[in-house]
Structures are given as structure tokens and as C-alpha cells.
Amino acid sequence: MAKKAVATLREGSMDGRAYTKVIKMVRSPKTGAYVFDERMVANEAVKDFFKK
């Protein structure tokens, strides 16, 4: 049987809408190649995440 994916955020809850998945491309100090920094941050902190 196939497994069913279980959502981590409850369907009726509005708490999940308070967070946004952000992805930023940064250069690795070791190799110099680009890597992706993915995080779930609060909607208010999105601009701060990209300023760093």
C-alpha cells in the first residue's frame, strides 16, 4: 500500500499562514560554489532574512 503524507500543519489552523518558506542563494566560503539557504520564517521576518 502507498503511504499517505501527513500534513504537519492542521487544516483548520491559521497558524500555518503566519510562516513563509524563503530560499536565498549564497556563496559557500569553502568551495566558492553557490548553495541554497532554505528556511521557514515568520511573515514579519522575511525582509530581515534577505538583508543578512
Rank of each mutant, 00 (worst) to 15 (best):
Lys30Thr: 09
Phe49Leu: 05
Phe50Glu: 05
Ala33Asp: 06
Asp48Met: 04
Glu11Ser: 15
Lys51Glu: 10
Met1His: 08
Val6His: 01
Val41Thr: 00
Val26Lys: 01
Met40Asp: 14
Pro29Lys: 01
Lys4Tyr: 05
Ala42Met: 12
Ala18Ser: 07
Tyr19Asn: 00
Asp48Tyr: 07
Ala7His: 08
Ile23Ala: 13
Glu44Gln: 13
Gly16Thr: 02
Asn43Val: 15
Tyr34Ala: 10
Ala42Phe: 10
Asp48Glu: 07
Lys30Asn: 11
Lys52Glu: 12
Glu44Trp: 14
Gly12Cys: 14
Val22Arg: 03
Thr8Leu: 15
Val41Phe: 06
Val46Cys: 00
Phe36Trp: 01
Asp37Arg: 00
Val26Ser: 04
Val22Phe: 00
Arg10Gly: 09
Met25Leu: 12
Arg27Phe: 08
Ser28Cys: 15
Gly16Glu: 08
Ala5Ser: 08
Ala45Trp: 14
Val26Glu: 02
Val26Gly: 01
Arg17Asp: 01
Lys3Met: 11
Tyr19Lys: 05
Ala18Glu: 06
Phe50Gln: 05
Glu44Ser: 12
Leu9Cys: 06
Lys3Tyr: 11
Ala5Lys: 12
Arg17Leu: 08
Val26His: 00
Glu11Asn: 12
Ser28Glu: 14
Val6Cys: 06
Ser13Cys: 14
Gly32Val: 04
Ala45Asn: 08
Lys24Gln: 02
